[in-house]
Design a protein around this nucleic acid. Structure first.
Lengths: 244, 244
DNA sequence: GTCAAAAAATGACAATACGTCATTTAATGA
DNA sequence: TCATTAAATGACGTATTGTCATTTTTTGAC
């Protein structure tokens, strides 16, 4: 049993190693140019061995995505635990999402590659189930903040948007914003100097519009964002700044 | 000259034919499974001939994207010409965007595939320039509606968002919403019954939040949406309904 | 109508990558 | 020590991209 356990540990270690090589290759050369042969070379194992870990290229993709999602979920949990009003917690979610995207290059592109174009049909059931479960949990987590706001009467039930619909809208806004930023459009030339700030103000406007108290006219949320960055996500914020 | 012109016409026709075959193949089997050989077979030309039209697979992709963008731009122009308040025109933009996405399957996926993963580096300069130009024009077109609102005092200059930033935010919201919908997430199970309506209400909230008059509490924009669908985009709306 | 020159079409070919599987190599424990 | 089991390997079959020498067609001068 000891030997079995040792063997299993070795395999798990190698699994992580191969995944990491994949991640780095994608980071430098893009998913398009990721080749199993290449991973084999770098890891100094043979192609067959790599295929014992990942039945196909797509399996690497989804496992990287799941790894990213686990990170996001954990950051969201810390955001929800922020001591403050429900709206401040939602702001912490935004900050977490931004930092997560900044710290995980390509995470959006990977997620999208995974979901688009019949890619999901090639991956293992286990990975796919985990993927769905994570998505579900993440949405539920954010929705719980909205529900808390309703309970605390900071947001009126029966406002124009239901809790999950509001989550969907905010998700759209953040996700869409990151996406547009990642498309290397000449945003600056279009007059969009600071897209992140624009997204933040759009969120504020939207939350004001549905009447989530305290309104942005009643509270300095920009200062709150700074406080969140320097307390809850101090480490991530630092990593983010030193990376550029 | 007549002969030259005839030849050119033949080539242009074939070019359109090949593009259309590509579009249909992508529609049924996804961009991943698009093969030049396959296009050659279906068109009954040889592979070499196909390569005389498109230097690579990516060239087909960008040309399809550009074709889609031209369609979007033309719909946006009609939306801007809607007779109504500036905010109603912006709503017409939303309707146009939704219809466009519904009528052009995969258009988002294609656009994203094009922009992600070093794909742009393989395409011709002409196509790339056209692509950038179209993006620019489309953003400018929407921004002009915001500027009109400011001129008409329906929206206060110096509101929390500048004109291009507001465009960016709305774009994020619409684009992100469509994207999330296209990822075949179990939105319904997450409590999001009607994502399109959610996006619409999010837009209304956001525009209310920045004080774009008349506010949604002062005006029945749902009715306006219906009117836009049945007048400006009657044809598209019909095509959209009969397609499903 | 003929024919040489130009243009266009063709498909064989090299290159690259995925995924399989028979064979080789290593580990185990009786 | 050795038979058995597990694991690693890389040659191979298949598929797809993109090129290019060769063949075919078109053109226009005579």
């Amino acid at each position: 049993m000891n030997t079995l356990s040792r063997k299993q540990r070795e395999i798990a270690e190698r699994h992580a190693l191969l995944l990491d090589i994949g991640r780095r290759l994608i980071e430098t050369e893009g998913y398009r140019n990721l080749g199993m042969e290449r991973i084999a070379e770098i890891s100094e194992y043979s192609k067959g061995t790599v295929y014992q870990h990942f039945s196909c290229k797509e399996e690497i993709l989804i496992q990287l995505c799941n790894h990213n999602s686990i990170g996001l979920k954990s950051m969201f949990e810390r955001a929800r635990a922020f001591e403050g009003s429900s709206r401040e917690k939602m702001l912490a979610i935004f900050v977490a999402h931004e930092l997560w995207a900044a710290l995980n290059p390509n995470c959006l592109e990977l997620h999208q590659t995974l979901c688009g174009g019949g890619t999901k049909e090639k991956v293992s059931n286990d990975s796919l189930e985990l993927h769905n479960k994570l998505d579900f949990e993440i949405v539920g987590l954010v929705a719980s903040i909205v529900e808390e706001a309703v309970e605390k009467k900071e947001l009126h039930e029966g406002a124009s948007l239901s809790a999950p619909e509001l989550v969907f809208s905010l998700w759209s806004l953040c996700h869409g914003g990151l996406q547009l930023r990642s498309l290397d459009l000449p945003l600056a030339k279009m007059g969009i100097k600071n897209p992140q700030a624009a997204t933040l103000r759009a969120i504020e406007s939207m939350l004001d519009g549905i009447g989530w108290h305290p309104l942005s006219t009643e509270h300095d949320y920009v200062a709150v964002v700074e406080r969140i960055k320097s307390t809850v996500f101090a480490e991530e914020q630092h990593a983010c700044e030193s990376a550029r």
